[in-house]
Amino acid sequence: MTEPYLQVKNLNVSYAAIPALANVSIDLAKGERLAVIGESGSGKSTLAMAIAGLLPKQARSSGTIDFPGLSHSPKPGKDIGVLFQDPSGSLDPVMKIGDQIAEVAMTHQGISWIAARVRAAQLLDRVRIPKPLSRLNSYPHEFSGGQKQRIAMAAALAGNPSLLIADEPTSALDTVVQRHIVDLLDELVREAGLTLLFVTHDIALASERADTIAVLYQGRLVETGPTVRVLGEPEHPYTRALINTHISLDTPRAKRLAEINVADL
C-alpha cells in the first residue's frame, strides 16, 4: 500500500470540556476525494478545521495529524486551501478582489506584485468570472453569492495547495448555483490533481463526487470506506438512518430521526 498523503491518528478535540471529536483516525491518499458527512454538531467541521490548522484558540486537542506526502509541515494557503461555507464572510469587504487573490499568490510563491496580479486574473478566469482582467478592481459587494464563492475558490487555490478543504461550500447558496459551484470544484480538483476533503450533509452530493466517505456521529467516526461500499452496504445503523432520511425527505423530521436509535450504536 502506498504512503497516505494525510494521516489523522486518535484525534480528540474539545471546547471548554465539551468534546467535539473523540478518537478520530482517518487516512487520505494523494488525489483522493473524501466526503465527511454527518448532521450538524457531529464534529465534521471541527475535523476539517483541525486538519487545516484553524482550530480556535480555546479548543483543546490531542492526537496527531501528519502529512507524510509533504516534506515539511503544511503551511496554510501554500499547502492547504480552505473554502468556507459563507462566501460573503470569506472576503474582506473593502479590498479589491484582485488584490485579495494576488496577496495569496505573492505570499506563497515569492513573485512580484505585478506577476501576482496577472496570476489573480488567470485564476479568476479559471473559476469562470467573466472579463477577469477588469473585474480585478471590483469589490466583493459587486458580486453575487455564487460569484463570491468562485472568487474565494480562486483565493484558496492561489498558493497552489495540494490539499483543498471545503467546509459545506454550497450550503449558503441556492440550488442552481450549488450545482455550478460543485461542478467547478470537481473540475479544478481533477485538473490540478488535488486531494479534496469536503464536508457536507448532502448525501447525494457525496455519492456523486467522493471516492471515499467518512461518517461522523456525535464526534466519533462511525464508518469510513469507499463511497459505493458505504452507501450501498452501510454497516453502521447511523449510516443507514442517514441514507434513509435522505431517501424520504418528505417524511416528517421526527419520524426520520426515530430510526436513529442511540442504543444500537
Binding site: 487545516a52 484553524l54 503551511k75 496554510p76 494557503g77 501554500k78 492547504i80 486551501g81 480552505v82 468556507f84 459563507d86 464572510g89 470569506s90 472576503l91 474582506d92 469587504p93 479590498m95 496577496e103 495569496v104 505570499t107 506563497h108 474565494a152 483565493a155 484558496a156 492561489a158 498558493g159
Partner: peptide, 19 residues
C-alpha cells in the same frame, strides 16, 4: 469570519493587522 479566511490563506499576521 473574513479574518479566519485570511488566516487560512496564510496571509502574514502583520498584513492582516495593517491591510
Amino acid at each position: 469570519p473574513f479574518v479566519s479566511a485570511l488566516e487560512a490563506r496564510g496571509i502574514s499576521r502583520s498584513r492582516i493587522v495593517w491591510r
